[in-house]
Design a protein around this nucleic acid. Structure first.
Lengths: 196, 196
DNA sequence: GTCTATACGAAGATAGAC
DNA sequence: GTCTATCTTCGTATAGAC
């Protein structure tokens, strides 16, 4: 657990960074952009982020990871893995549609640039791990074996993140839609038969 | 079909850009880096790429896409979709291992940065499409229906690209390995039973 | 917590000689 | 095809006042 002095300004900067990262990536986004987008005062950058841009990247990955994490947890309250999958896909479809395919996942943006620094990359890995844990938990609760649940959860996260990239590149929702459909079939096949 | 005046210098620059993009991304890689890495003469940048960095990005996505495409075609000569999948996974594992998890897919690097320009993003989308076409073709030849083959091919490309990102972020080959394993099971289940 | 000012290198891009 | 020189903007980061 990281202890962070939370302020409105810092929080707004992190949120803006997430929105900018998912379109322009880490290197493509400067403090200049973050300041403008968040309306934060210019002089407060290194007050809130003494570690500079690398610290901002780590905080952004952590925050964005938490947002998605809570979304997954909410969709999984009924214990239905298929509902979790559908909610996950729907959330990303909304990101693609509302941005005209310009935006993707901010965690991916951090993960694919080693320059963001080891802490930021680790925060991205931690976020992906938490998502997988939540999804695997729903699968286990639905009767899937532990090891298989883990592998399936990894497949779900990887396939959807990849589908987002494919959909952005082709400016077409088909990859995300088809991957969602195939994943749904895969999960159904792995779940114990329910004759009720 | 694009007509390009191919020269050694231009070719070396494109190759270097691909190697740099997969670690640092598009925005994180400057012409400076490309010149240094390729040993190309400084004054020849805008001779070979009148369109500037955006043209370099498009050429890089196209070239890297072709390299992987030929690799897929080679692995598919025997008509075995499982062999194609394994070759695909093995190729990316080598990239991750040999770079200590610093390198990923250069096409993804271009696809996730809108700043690279529409032509470059389209080139990335075209590359992904070609890979899917080849994989879908192998599946159809093995007896899978047209629509299902297409969806499965999309799943394979998306899941593996996503797994590369997850493996980079966690500095662990497990995501790529587990996704490869699950995809293999999925393909086997989709192929017509073979009792020979 | 926020300000201005500033350092200093690097970015992409262009011009014109050779 | 390649060179050097140069333009302009932007990048991160720091110093020190308020």
């Amino acid at each position: 657990m990281m202890i962070v002095i939370a302020t409105d300004t810092r929080q707004r900067m992190v949120r803006s960074a997430a929105l900018l990262f998912r379109e322009q990536g880490y290197s493509g986004t400067g403090f200049r952009d973050v300041i403008e987008h968040s309306g934060a005062p210019r002089g407060s950058i290194y007050h809130h982020f003494p570690g500079g841009k690398a610290e901002l990247a780590a905080a952004t990955a952590e925050w964005a990871g938490g947002v998605v994490e809570r979304q997954i947890a909410r969709a999984g309250r009924d214990g239905d893995p298929i509902a979790v999958l559908r909610g996950f896909v729907a959330g990303w479809r909304e990101v693609l549609e509302s941005s005209d395919f310009r935006a993707g996942c901010p965690i991916v943006a951090v993960a694919v640039e080693s320059e963001a620094g080891p802490e930021a990359v680790a925060a991205a890995g931690h976020a992906f791990g938490r998502w997988q844990d939540l999804i695997a938990g729903t699968l286990r609760d639905a009767g899937v074996g532990r090891a298989e649940a883990r592998r399936l959860a990894t497949l779900v996260v990887a396939a959807i993140e990849g589908a987002i990239v494919l959909s952005r590149a082709t400016r077409d929702l088909r990859p995300l839609r088809d991957v969602g459909r195939e994943l749904e079939a895969t999960l159904r096949a792995a779940l114990p038969a329910d004759d009720s």
